[in-house]
Simulated assay, not measured.
Amino acid sequence: MSLQQLWLMCLSYPAQVVNGLALFLALAGGWLLLATRLREQRAAARLLLDGELATLAEAGLAGDARSERLNRFFYAFGAASLLAALLLSWLSTSLQAAALR
């Protein structure tokens, strides 16, 4: 399939293209949230195995500040991409309804 035919197909079905982009953003955001959660669990398990978790809890420290800041950023970015996917999905349904009229 040539690039010109692919472009014409995208122009013919704009709702499908927007919905595909929403699907990509939802998958990427969900994967980022899941990977961040697994990263947090592995770090807590590593601290628990090393016996450092109890000493950090006694000292009132939750963990490394840089890691927590990075995790908060990943959570916010993942949530924002899921929100963008939801909005794009709603937009694609309105595009499809407008095309049917």
Rank of each mutant, 00 (worst) to 15 (best):
A54S: 07
N19A: 15
R37L: 15
L32A: 14
A15E: 14
L95D: 01
F77L: 13
S2F: 01
A65W: 05
W90K: 02
A59T: 05
Q41S: 13
E58Q: 12
V18M: 14
R72A: 11
L86S: 09
L53A: 07
G30W: 10
L87D: 02
R42G: 10
L6W: 08
L87G: 09
L32I: 12
D64R: 05
A45H: 10
S67Q: 09
L91W: 06
A35Q: 15
S89I: 02
A65Y: 02
A26D: 12
F73T: 07
E40L: 13
L61H: 05
A54R: 06
A22I: 06
L48N: 12
A76Q: 09
E58S: 08
Y75L: 13
E58G: 06
V18E: 08
F74G: 00
N19E: 15
P14E: 12
G29L: 12
M9F: 10
S92F: 03
L34H: 15
L61F: 02
L47A: 13
S67C: 01
E68K: 01
A54H: 03
G51C: 02
R37G: 15
S67Y: 07
L61Y: 03
A80V: 07
Y13S: 09
W7V: 12
S67I: 01
L11G: 13
E68V: 00
G78V: 02
L6V: 10
F24A: 15
T55N: 00
V17K: 05
